[in-house]
Amino acid sequence: MWATSNIVARKAQAAQPGYDALQFVVWSSLVPIGPFAALAWWCEPAVTRWQWMQASPVGWLGVAYLGWFATIAAYALWTGLLKRHAAASVAPFSLGVPVIGLAAGILLLGETMSALQWAGSACVVAALVAVMLGPRLWTRIISQAPQR
């Protein structure tokens, strides 16, 4: 779905010269509310269907943060990047999302990572470095190689 939204954002940008990434994200964020609410209603047992109404103020603040800041601001920034750069140069940075999430858990919540999580994070960072710097490094290596 993320790839589809990237394509839709690119097409919207091409069709509308004054394309505003924040407006696009805000309006498109209204679309999943109905299907997600219906799915939650259908999947949850009848006893717990209205328990969300009893959430604490901290719980509602968490929902507001995730819904407004984390989702809308992050996707607006993302579509803003897609507006200025090619998708192929921006998309690899999405690999950093789980690594940043794990780092935030360590720094903010005092969580610990397993050896497998460290190895996975190292692989993700290595892949990102290879994708972003690989072509430049390869060109430099080829240009400095002795000619035959």
Rank of each mutant, 00 (worst) to 15 (best):
Met1Glu: 12
Ala3Ile: 08
Ala3Thr: 15
Ala3Glu: 13
Thr4Pro: 01
Thr4Tyr: 02
Thr4Glu: 08
Ser5Ile: 00
Ser5Trp: 10
Asn6Trp: 14
Ile7Lys: 13
Ile7Glu: 11
Val8Asn: 10
Val8Lys: 14
Ala9Phe: 00
Arg10Thr: 13
Lys11Leu: 11
Ala14Asp: 15
Ala14Arg: 14
Ala14Tyr: 00
Pro17Asp: 08
Pro17Asn: 03
Pro17Glu: 05
Tyr19Met: 09
Gln23Arg: 13
Gln23Ile: 05
Gln23Met: 14
Gln23Pro: 08
Phe24Ser: 06
Val25Arg: 03
Val25Thr: 10
Trp27Tyr: 10
Ser28Thr: 15
Ser29Val: 00
Ser29His: 01
Leu30Ala: 11
Leu30Tyr: 12
Val31Glu: 10
Val31His: 11
Val31Asn: 07
Val31Thr: 01
Pro32Tyr: 02
Ile33Ala: 05
Phe36Val: 06
Ala38Tyr: 03
Ala38Cys: 06
Leu39Lys: 04
Ala40Asn: 14
Trp41Cys: 03
Glu44Arg: 05
Pro45Arg: 15
Pro45Asp: 15
Arg49Asn: 09
Arg49Trp: 08
Trp50Asp: 10
Gln51Arg: 10
Trp52Asp: 09
Met53Trp: 13
Met53Cys: 04
Gln54Thr: 11
Ala55Pro: 01
Ser56Gln: 09
Ser56His: 12
Pro57Arg: 09
Pro57Tyr: 12
Pro57Asp: 11
Val58Asn: 12
Gly59Glu: 10
Gly59Thr: 15
Leu61Ala: 15
Val63Thr: 06
Ala64Leu: 15
Tyr65Phe: 14
Trp68Gln: 03
Ala74Glu: 07
Ala74Lys: 00
Ala76Ser: 15
Trp78Ser: 02
Lys83Arg: 15
Lys83Asp: 13
Arg84Pro: 08
Ala87Ile: 11
Ala87Val: 14
Ser89Lys: 02
Ser89Val: 14
Val90Asn: 00
Val90Thr: 10
Val90Gln: 00
Ala91Met: 06
Leu95Asp: 12
Val97Met: 10
Val97Trp: 02
Pro98Trp: 12
Pro98Asp: 09
Gly101Gln: 08
Leu102Ser: 02
Ala103Lys: 01
Ala104Gly: 08
Gly105Tyr: 11
Leu107Asn: 13
Leu108Thr: 02
Leu109Arg: 15
Ser114Pro: 04
Ala115Gln: 09
Leu116Lys: 07
Gln117Arg: 05
Gln117Met: 03
Gln117Ile: 04
Trp118Phe: 14
Ala119Trp: 05
Gly120His: 01
Ser121Asn: 02
Ser121Met: 07
Ala122Phe: 05
Cys123Gly: 11
Cys123Leu: 12
Cys123Asp: 04
Cys123Ile: 07
Cys123Pro: 03
Val125Met: 09
Ala126Arg: 06
Ala127Met: 13
Leu128Arg: 00
Leu128Glu: 07
Leu128Tyr: 03
Val129His: 05
Ala130Asn: 05
Val131His: 04
Met132Trp: 00
Gly134His: 04
Gly134Ile: 01
Pro135Trp: 04
Pro135Tyr: 04
Leu137Tyr: 00
Thr139Tyr: 05
Thr139Phe: 05
Thr139Met: 12
Ile141Tyr: 11
Gln144Asn: 06
Ala145Tyr: 03
Pro146Cys: 14
Pro146Gln: 11
Gln147Ala: 09
